[in-house]
């Protein structure tokens, strides 16, 4: 069971290394978006503006990074996976891979934001933690959305339409949570409570993906 998940994961990573152009494509996407922001914004944006821009960019990066994870699989290849693995193993591998990919992208974009737009962040470790949490949550939701959109043979636009209303509450939590890293004072335990809520939502998404993916899988 676990071996197959690891093998599928390994295959995705290998594919990413072979087709470097898509990886670099997303990197360039992040870089150019941040650069556009850098040119269009005042030198040091307010912390609330910085915060909302950061998370909106995360959202779009995720749509682009995760979108291809199911769209790239051709029909023949899906048939092959179908014969060697169970749907749960397949979705588990995809989820782990997308989370890893998104975490790399999130941290890179955080670095770019830091260099280009300055940073209102006071507690840097905390903010990195929040970024990791947020990247995980966003990529989990968009993995399943990507699986659905792939079945509809649609482009990334459908993923955005399907995913944005669903991700909104998590995004609000994250925006609220990151204010704690900007030195805003919270009620005792509120930060932990919000983080816990976010993790619970992530778990819910994972459980739903595992339950629902088998229905998307068979054709």
């Amino acid at each position: 069971m676990n071996k197959k998940v690891i093998a599928l994961l390994f295959k995705d990573v290998l594919l990413e290394f072979r087709q470097k152009h898509s990886f670099y494509g997303i990197l360039l996407y992040i870089a150019s978006t941040v650069f556009v922001l850098y040119l269009s914004m005042p030198d040091t944006p307010e912390s609330s503006v910085w915060n909302s821009l950061f998370w909106v960019i995360q959202l779009f990066v995720c749509v682009n990074a995760v979108a291809k994870s199911f769209l790239q699989e051709s029909k023949g290849r899906m048939l092959y996976f179908y014969s060697i693995a169970s749907p749960i193993q397949f979705i588990a591998a995809k989820l782990i891979f997308n989370v890893l990919l998104m975490l790399i992208m999130s941290l890179i974009s955080l670095g770019l934001f830091y260099t280009f737009l300055g940073s209102p962040v006071v507690d840097f470790q905390l903010f990195i933690g929040i970024t990791i949490l947020g990247g995980t949550g966003i990529s989990l939701v968009f993995s399943l959305m990507s699986a659905i959109a792939a079945k509809a043979q649609q482009n990334a636009a459908l993923i955005a339409i399907l995913g944005f209303p669903v991700i909104l509450p998590q995004l609000l939590i994250l925006i609220k949570l990151s204010k704690s890293a900007f030195g805003e004072v919270f009620r005792d335990g509120a930060v932990l409570q919000l983080a816990g809520l976010n993790i619970l939502m992530d778990l819910l998404v994972i459980v739903l993906s595992v339950i629902l993916f088998p229905y998307l899988w068979k054709d």
């Binding site: 939701v141 659905i148 509450p169 819910l204 998404v205 629902l212």
Partner: peptide
Amino acid sequence: VYNIFAFAM
């Protein structure tokens, strides 16, 4: 599938 997922969220 989407209906169930979205409603549960």
